[in-house]
Design a protein around this nucleic acid. Structure first.
Lengths: 201, 201
DNA sequence: ACAAAAACATACTTATATGAATGTTTTTAA
DNA sequence: TTAAAAACATTCATATAAGTATGTTTTTGT
């Protein structure tokens, strides 16, 4: 059983170092030798644990990229029963934007980076990322619909359309921020976002 | 003088084929041999006209990527004197979204793709793209401020913040659309965008 | 203790990239 | 017309990628 654990640990190590490099330099520009030099292991070790770079990419998206969005943007939305949904939405987006490290501001959103780098040219990656966006969208719709029942959101709001608008704005600003040198645009985005969300009620 | 024209034509040919391939497959994944095979010319011809791939990238951004955004999203905003600015904004964003070819919907925005692929890791590219986004933002601010003077936009609107929100949403949805198979999200985006813009007045 | 299997390393194959060096053809200007 | 310069082609140098083959070490079940 010790071997299975060791294998698991090695795989996780490779996945984590891969995520860091994919995030920093992109999927295409990151090579297996580069990843394995970070892990301190050899290329042989890599191909013992993974079939290909593509298989690794899938794991990185499923294990790390997906979890990041879930933990910060999707799961917290489950609080819709206890909290006013307008507050909830404003709070989650604001907290997320304010939580970013300097590097995270510079490098943008890992999911959005992958979507824009390889999204449409690899159907496997595309479908995993599509599922992630759909999960996020579904959860936002659920919150907005619950808000309508609680009379916190206007009935004429198109939840699906608003959900896409919120996701687009968030991912968009994380991309646009990459060309700038400071956080001004993040706060400008947040200001308008909050006003926009309040107008849903 | 015939030579100068020929040189200019060849350079433009290389730039145009490069744009197509950069747009379709990304900057990193596109090679000089691949570009030159499209032009029907040799690699020697390329290095006669361009210093490096990087220099080519600069030209493609300056000549084509920039022009696309200018022609469709920035220059048309100049109509703010004649047209109600709420209508103007809705119209330009709507027309642009509706004008996209199937390929343009699949491949997203060339500028946004570049920003997300190499934006933060190459200062030369980053600064050209930053200037482009800043030009767009400035023009939107101008239109919104003019709208205030014309009493078409509320005085408490933060023009700079709204401008960034509009750009982010637009670029964001063009990225997000890449993981989907249909145009539903583009129209959902447009629906919410229009409502949002109308609430500025 | 020991054979088998898993974990990992080393060396190799093949492909392809950027870019430089050098060669040939076309254009230009005197 | 003819030398030179510009346009373009061919060949070469160097680097590095993904993936494979084949090794060696460690772990495991008997």
């Amino acid at each position: 059983m010790k071997q299975k654990i060791k294998s698991e640990i090695t795989q996780q190590l490779i996945i984590e170092e891969s995520f860091k490099l994919f995030y920093k330099n992109g999927y295409s520009k990151t090579s297996i030798p580069e990843i394995m030099s970070k892990t301190g292991l050899s290329k042989g070790a890599f191909y013992h644990h993974f079939e290909s770079k593509h298989e690794l990419g899938k794991q990185v998206i499923k294990d790390i990229v997906r979890k990041r969005i879930y933990d910060s943007m999707i799961t917290p939305l489950n609080n819709y029963k206890k909290e006013n949904v307008i507050n909830l939405l404003c709070r989650i987006f604001t907290e997320r934007i304010k939580s970013f490290s300097i590097e995270e501001k510079r490098l943008g959103c890992p999911a959005n980076n992958l979507i824009n780098e390889i999204g449409c040219s690899d159907d496997v990656f595309r479908n995993i990322l599509k599922q992630l966006i759909n999960d996020w969208k579904s959860m936002l719709i659920k919150v907005l619909e619950e808000g309508k029942l609680k009379k916190e959101i206007k009935k004429d709001v198109n939840s699906s359309a608003v959900a896409i608008y919120l996701i687009s704005g968030f991912e968009g600003v994380r991309g646009i921020r990459k060309v700038f040198d400071d956080d001004k645009i993040l706060f400008e985005y947040l200001e308008t976002l909050k006003k926009h969300i309040h107008q849903l009620g």
